[in-house]
Design a protein around this nucleic acid. Sequence first.
DNA 1: TAATTTCGATACAATCTGTAGCGTAATCGG
DNA 2: CCGATTACGCTACAGATTGTATCGAAATTA
Lengths: 205, 205
Amino acid sequence: MEQEPSGSGADGHGAPPRRTAGRPRSESARRSVLGAAYAILEEGGIEDFSIDRVARLSGVARTTIYRWWPSKAVLAIESFLEQFGPQLAVPRGEAPDQDFRALVRALAAALAGPAGRVAASVVAHAQSDEETQRLFRENFSDPLRTQAAELLERGITHGVFRSDLDIPRVIDAFVGAVYFRLIIGSSLGPDWADALSETILNGCR
Amino acid sequence: MEQEPSGSGADGHGAPPRRTAGRPRSESARRSVLGAAYAILEEGGIEDFSIDRVARLSGVARTTIYRWWPSKAVLAIESFLEQFGPQLAVPRGEAPDQDFRALVRALAAALAGPAGRVAASVVAHAQSDEETQRLFRENFSDPLRTQAAELLERGITHGVFRSDLDIPRVIDAFVGAVYFRLIIGSSLGPDWADALSETILNGCR
DNA sequence: TAATTTCGATACAATCTGTAGCGTAATCGG
DNA sequence: CCGATTACGCTACAGATTGTATCGAAATTA
């Protein structure tokens, strides 16, 4: 009894797809649902988002959605991760401070687009649900932080940054700043991103 | 036609309460509603929040609530501001960097408590509604920023901080960091707050 | 073919939304 | 005190949404 549907893919590396008896899960239905969920979040944000709408837009039966996704929050976050996760790319050039600027600019740019609205909705859902907080942290926040930390460590090794740099706090600062602006509805243009980078870098050298 | 109920108090200094004909708005009902809304947000977050529940808990008729508050988002944010707004107190001691530490610690402490959950819910609602974004910015974000800016300017005048300090960016950084941690569900203890302060202050001197 | 599992469809009670209509309560101006 | 005005509580309503249960059909393995 009590299988464990797990919504697919979000936990990274589940057991290999050893097929058991019975009709296999429809991959196309899964994609339709996640796609429709993303589209609705992108268009109308948290307010217009409902399982019902996702079902109608995707053409997948509501009961099928309930079978695989335990809550709106999880559905929202998985649709976001599927679309946004692959975008994560931390620059690795010569100068660590230049890389840092590029990273901040890239994060701001990514969230300035329509994906930002989805991200905001997703995290909005997340805070009422322990499980979705975990999903967001493990699949989005932590990977970003890990890569940023490597970048900063490189800067320390190269002697560009101070050796007693509190790396996690630096990351808190710039990720938080970007995210808070997204939420507040302030602009996330490259000029702002560069100014933020400069301010933070001032404390790193 | 088309009166403008304005939910009271959130716009700061509306016209003085010049009474017109008719039964006056019940102040006790208003307080009951805001109190109930806050209690529900504090307990169950965004998920359990509905006009219906607020009506039942407050003992105020649902129709009366709809009369004064145009949306869940506005109701949520006003209940938050009424409770949290007065808590804003920016320290003003001798050393500007000490004041800055105290400010960060105070903000983190305030949001670490149950009020944090309410704040998170409120902002979650806000991003789908232009009006609530404005309310949040004008009544919470901007005042905090203004006071923090004064603190930082004082530091520049006293020669403790660098003269080319990009004050708005510094504020983006520390406010964002606190808020993002709140959303993510990470701890907001005094140790963390102090570490963040130190990291940011490193770039200010 | 038999067992198994998914999928889509329908149905259901429960909750929530937003609005309308009604009678009552409170306040102001004359 | 009276009439006008406005707020309040109550009831009712249509529509949307939730979450679950049940059923038959489809797909796949053994």
